[in-house]
Amino acid sequence: MMNDATQVIQTLKVNGEERRVMFPAHHTLLEVLREECGLTGTKHGCELGECGACTVLVDGAPVLSCLVLAADLEGADIQTVEGMAEGQTLHPLQESFAELGAAQCGYCTPGMLLTAKALLDECEQPTDEDVAEALAGNLCRCTGYAKIVEAVQWAAAKVRGDEDGAPADEAVFGKEIRS
């Protein structure tokens, strides 16, 4: 279908739910999600593709919703942070992020979670380097990233069915002091 107009009426499939929405052709997916769909879980920190806060999944791949034209997404499968939990049951990533304090201010968190989800969907047992590489486009100013890497690894272990994947005490309480 060609959208030959400055206004678009279109069906968007978000978190498995189809919605008919109308928006200006120049509005990005970020704007349409937040303003037309009421899905404010998707954040924005620059709107220029420089921070990663607005990351969502389009057909499973993490992309920056601030640089995607919503009018281009007819038929695409869009996933936002609101679609990660199954009812009241959190996704393992959400569990581990909450548990470890990998979300401090929480503003980069939705983008981090979705980028990490795409990684875990592809890779069962990532190394810490794999995690860092995959998340390198998502900036965080609070955590120093350590708890995020630990949370992704813990979630990966949980997804694999590895019950011993919790981070070591050292990661949570600091290194033991012997002196």
């Binding site: 060609m2 678009v8 052709a25 120049h26 990005t28 709107e47």
Partner: peptide
Amino acid sequence: MMRLPSFRLLSP
């Protein structure tokens, strides 16, 4: 939020 100016979009 920084927004785009308006334009006509073609999706061939």
